[in-house]
Structures are given as C-alpha cells and as structure tokens.
Design a protein around this nucleic acid. Structure first.
Lengths: 229, 229
DNA sequence: CTAATAGTGTCTTTTAGACAATATATC
DNA sequence: GATATATTGTCTAAAAGACACTATTAG
C-alpha cells in the first residue's frame, strides 16, 4: 500500500527535466519531445519524468533512467542546474523539478530521434510545455557561464576529435571567434587533452589538405560529482 | 482528502534545508538547531522543513516560512545551492532536499538564539543529522567559490558599514589577507557601494583614532533571482 | 602624540588575446 | 600548387597584487 508521508496534505510531484544539448553544424541545439500524455499532450517538452521511489536510488539515477527509457540514451555527461518548485507550475498539483543539463555529440542522438525526439535551436525552441522555456533558459545561462572555462565543450565531441573540431565547439559555446594559434597553445598546455597518435579519419569528404591529429580528453567523466562552477 | 499523485508507489518527501552563514568575530559560522522530533530527535541539524503544499507558493516561499517559523528570521539574503535526493538519506522514505544558503549579520541572529539555535564553525560543525554535514560542505564550497568575486560578503554586514569592516568580511570569506590600499581602490571603483556621508557610530569603545566613513550597497537584494555566479 | 582610517604612486607578474610569420602534410 | 593544419614569436592591454609612502582625523 503506497504511503503519503505528508499525511494531512497533498504530496508534491517530484520530477527531473533534462536539457539535452548538442552541437548541430556549429549551432547549439536542444532535444525536445512531444508529450505522450496529459497534461500538454502532444506539445513539445524537455526530456523529463517523475521520480520513482520504488526503483530510483537517487536523483542521478532518475536522470539515467529517464534518459534511457524516454530517449534511449546512456553514458551521458550530465550536471545539475538547479531546482524549481511551485504550486502553479503543474496543473495536477504542487510540483518540484530538478533541472539537469546533458551534453553529447549529435552522432549519438539517433536513439533519441527514434523515440520521437528532435532538435530545436537552444535560443529559439518554440513554445514548450509547463515552464520548460524558463528551465531551458536556466540551462543555457549555466552552459554559457561555465562552459567557456571548463572541459564542457569537449562533451559535444566524440571520444576522439581534432583541434579544429574542439576550436569550433569552444566557439559555439562562447559565441565568438577565437584565435587559432593562441587557442592551440593554451589548450595543449592545460593538460586536458592528449594526442592519440592517430590522424583524422576523414569524416567529411573534402580532400586535399593536411590531416588533423586526433586527441582525446585526459580524464573521462560522465557525472559531475564534484559540483562547482 | 489528501492526494498522493504517485498512485502506485510512495510519494517522496520534499524539504528545504538552509545553511545560515554569519561572521562571528571574523570566523565563518553556521546556524544549527537541535531537532524537535524524530528522526534524530535532539541531534543538531540545519534549519529545515517540509514543503507544505497547502500554504507554500513556491520553493522560495518554503525557505521564507521555514526561516520565519523555525528561527524567527525575515528578509534574509538566500540563494539556492543545489538539490540532493535519494532513497537512503531519510529513514522515512525517498527524500529530496533543496539546499539553500542564507547570509546575514550576527547582530540579526537574536531571534534564532531564542528559538534554541546556535552557531558552530562552518568548517567544523560537529556531527549533524541526516546528511547535513554533506549539505553544509556543498554550501561552504559555493560560498567560497562565488563569494570572493561578488557582493556576497556585504550580506554579512549591517545595512551600513565601514570599509575596514567590509575588508574583514572579504578576508573571512576568502580566507586570506588582502592589501588595504589595493582593496579600497578596487572596491570603490566597482560602484557596488556608496558613501552615506555619515561617519562611524562607534560600535566598539576603542576611542582614539580617526572615524571611518559609512557605506551602503548601491543595490539591495534579498533573493538572488538572477541565478549565476 | 598615537593610532586607525584614507588615498596614491609605482612596480611586478600574470593572463588573454591579437597579429604575424612560417612550416607541414595531403591531394 | 592549393589548402587546411600546425607551430612559434612578438606585442599589447588589462588585471591583480605587493609595497611604500603620505595625509587625515579623532581622542
């Protein structure tokens, strides 16, 4: 028999909502999904789901389950953004949502597309269900504030990447051009990346130039347990 | 009849826990309070309480109500730190806590003391109920990371304060000495404070030196709606 | 006079970035 | 040879901080 520990009044709804960021042709985009159920059935919303107290170990486990079951994604870099709770934001009652942002390369989004999700520009997502436009703005702010001076832009790329690709990722996050020479000098001195020794497996069929060296991150992380901006 | 929107399984417990920071003789301290009820009855814990879905408008309203009813504090600067949720952290069930930090001058804590709360060193609080030692660490990290480069140290002082007092607050937050001349130059140029024209109403009875000018913050804020470090 | 507050000048170090020049590798 | 990648050198500007010195204003 399920319990309501609140006894004399209604229990709040507790959900996670995940802003899945990716880089699509150099543009910052977010995953949205038409809602399967009421309320806001058929309307686009962030990737979200209720906490299942009988199966989820903790809030990060909720995120993992929701990403896996709703859009088929696993082993994703995620980081908590903040929480938002109010009596009005959900028509069924007092609701608290823990907002997370996730980042991954667009190549890994196929399962999400097969689940009916699709990409919209992060700065112009259209009208979303609930207060998801506001939640998205929180995540974009956090990404831009923190991303430029961290390893976050690497999460937009596959495990192995070239320096021109990494430069593009930083530029997309910061929204400005960076000097090539200065960027290379800085990024290689920081010790955050290491060469694989390989050269570029040409992803595009341009042909006709020097092949770029492949790099990878020196430390691998999916969850940002440390918490700090 | 209270509802459990979760239907088939237990509803999670939702609380806020507030780390109330103050500066006591130049030392960073936190308010703790012996718990009135089970679990952990009699043990010290952060200032916290359950979300009351029938009376709280949103999560910040929960913080205001908890501060007012548990320790008699009002009009306090507060800022969300993060949320922590898991099946294990509360013996009565799956529990999610939204952690806030609050900052105010020690002179305003009298009501809290009358409610049985007292101050402990923020870095050495003793053993607290639940996972409150961990939550406190999150808040201290955030304070130190963000505090040094923001207006946060001003929240430790009364509305009007002197530059030597402000210098002390910054030093306490950063944990290091600052150069007096450089500090004055920087802080007066940033436009964050303005002189009141008054001179120090001597709080201490030292006597025998030049009186300090009084300053106040140019913008007043209690809730950090903007959210950003 | 003494002592805390206040205001200034100068110096160094660091960092970020802009800009330029050149070299290398591939088709 | 054309082009994207790679490497290096130099210069400037901005910011932070250390240190020193002087001035002011109260008891």
């Amino acid at each position: 028999m399920p319990t309501n520990p609140y006894g004399k009044f209604d229990a709040p709804i507790v959900t996670v909502d995940i802003v899945v960021f990716t880089l699509d042709q150099g543009n910052l985009k977010t995953l949205v999904q038409p809602r399967a159920r009421q309320p806001f059935q058929g309307m686009d919303g962030l990737i979200g789901g209720w906490v299942h107290t009988n199966e989820d170990e903790d809030d990060e486990a909720v995120v993992e389950r929701v990403l896996r079951t709703k859009v088929g994604l696993e082993d994703v870099y995620v980081e908590q953004v903040r929480s938002v709770g109010s009596a009005k934001r959900h028509p069924e009652g007092w609701s608290l949502s823990v907002v997370y942002m996730a980042i991954l390369p667009v190549e890994r989004l196929k399962p999400a597309f097969e689940h009916g999700a699709y990409l919209v520009p992060a700065d112009d997502p259209g009208i979303l269900a609930f207060d998801h436009n506001k939640l998205l703005k929180f995540a974009v702010e956090r990404l831009r504030a923190k991303g430029a001076y961290s390893t976050i832009p690497m999460e937009f790329l596959p495990e192995e990447f070239t320096l021109p690709e990494l430069l593009n990722a930083y530029q997309a996050v910061m929204g400005e051009q960076l000097d090539d020479g200065s960027f290379r000098r800085r990024i290689t001195q920081l010790g955050l990346i290491e060469s694989t020794g390989e050269k570029k497996k040409p992803r595009d069929g341009q042909g006709g130039q020097r092949l770029a060296m492949m790099y990878r991150a020196t430390q691998k992380k999916t969850f940002d347990k440390s918490f700090r901006r």
